[in-house]
C-alpha cells in the first residue's frame, strides 16, 4: 500500500507538484497520466526518495521511502536510460545487483532471471552502446528488478520504443502485476494507461485533476459517445450517454443501414474535458 498525502514541490516559480494525494493498494497498477512537464517525474522522484518534497508525506507500507528498509523494496525505472553504455548488459546488472547485499547465488540467479524476463539473455555480453533503443529500455527495466522489489516505479518506460519492444514491455508489466507487485506507471500514452492500469490519475501543472478506474474516469469526464448512422435516410450523427438504448431507438425507423460509426470517449477525451487541451502536443 502506497499512501501519498499532500505532496508539494516547487522549483523557483514553477509548482512542479501541487498537493498531490493518492492511495495505491498493493498489487495494483497505477497510471500517472499527464503531458510534458506535468509533474509526473517529480512525483515519482519524491515517492522513491530521490528528492525531498517541500511538503506532504509518502509511505510505502508505513515506511518512509528514504529509509534503508524501504529502499530494498523500491525499484525505480528512470525516465532516461540509466545504464553504463560502455559496460556489457551483464556488467551493468551485476553492478546494480551488488548494491543490494544479495548473496552471490541469489545475485547470479536474479541476474539470469532479469535477463530472461526482458528477453536479453542472448545479448548479456554485448555492450549497452550496441543496443537498440528498445533493448536499452528493456535493460533499463531489468536493472530495476534485480532485488525483487515490491514497489516498481516506471517513469515512461516505453519512451522511444518500437511496437515490438513496447508489447514486450507491456507483457512485462502484466507479468509483474501477476507476481503481486505494486506498480506506478507514468505515461502520456492514453492507450497504455487504458490497457494496463487498474487506476489512473490525471495530472497537469502539478495538480491531480482526476483519480479513478479507467471506466470511472471515462464515465465521469469522457462525455457522451458519438454515434453516426448512415442509411437510406442519409447520415445521422448524435451523442449518446446510453449507447444501447439510443442506438436501438434510432435504428427503429431505418430500413437499410449502410454504416454505423461509434466514437467512444477515451482518456484523451477525459483529458480534453478536464484541461481544455490535448494531452500530446
Amino acid at each position: 500500500m502506497i499512501i501519498v498525502k499532500g505532496l508539494q514541490k516547487r522549483y523557483g516559480s514553477i509548482q512542479a507538484v501541487d498537493h498531490v494525494s493518492l492511495e495505491i493498494p498493493t498489487g495494483h497498477i497505477f497510471g500517472l497520466l499527464g503531458p510534458n512537464g506535468a509533474g509526473k517525474s517529480t512525483s515519482i522522484s519524491i515517492m522513491t526518495g530521490l528528492i525531498d518534497a517541500d511538503g506532504g508525506s509518502v509511505e510505502l507500507d508505513g515506511l518512509e521511502p528514504k529509509s534503508m528498509k524501504a529502499r530494498y523494496n523500491i525499484g525505480l525505472v528512470p525516465q532516461s536510460i540509466a545504464l553504463y553504455e560502455e559496460l556489457t548488459a551483464l556488467d551493468n546488472l551485476a553492478f546494480f545487483a551488488s548494491l543490494y547485499s544479495l548473496t552471490p547465488d541469489v545475485k547470479s540467479s536474479r541476474i539470469d532471471w532479469a535477463l530472461q524476463f526482458v528477453g536479453l539473455q542472448d545479448r548479456a555480453n554485448d555492450r549497452v552502446s550496441e543496443f537498440s533503443g528498445g533493448m536499452k529500455r528493456r535493460l533499463n527495466l531489468a536493472a530495476s528488478l534485480l532485488h525483487d522489489p515490491d514497489y516498481i516505479f516506471m517513469d515512461e518506460p516505453t519512451a522511444g520504443v518500437d511496437p515490438q519492444s513496447r508489447n514486450k514491455l507491456f507483457d512485462n508489466v502484466m507479468e509483474l502485476k501477476e507476481l503481486g507487485k505494486t506498480i506506478i506507471y507514468t505515461t502520456h500514452y492514453m492507450e497504455e494507461a487504458q490497457k494496463l492500469c487498474d487506476r489512473v490519475g490525471i495530472i497537469d501543472h502539478g495538480k491531480l485533476l482526476a483519480l479513478g478506474t479507467v471506466n470511472e474516469l471515462l464515465h465521469q469526464y469522457g462525455g457522451d459517445t458519438k454515434l453516426s448512422i448512415s442509411s437510406e435516410k442519409g447520415v445521422k450523427s448524435f451523442s449518446s450517454a446510453n449507447v444501447s438504448e439510443d442506438l436501438t431507438n434510432a435504428l427503429r425507423d431505418i430500413d437499410k443501414v449502410y454504416d454505423i460509426s461509434m466514437n467512444r470517449p477515451d482518456l484523451e477525451a477525459v483529458f480534453l474535458n478536464l484541461t481544455g487541451r490535448q494531452l500530446r502536443d
Partner: peptide, 13 residues
Amino acid sequence: TLGTMNRLIVAPI
C-alpha cells in the same frame, strides 16, 4: 548526467 546516480541514490547505499 547518465541518471545512474539516481539508481545509486534509490539503492540502499
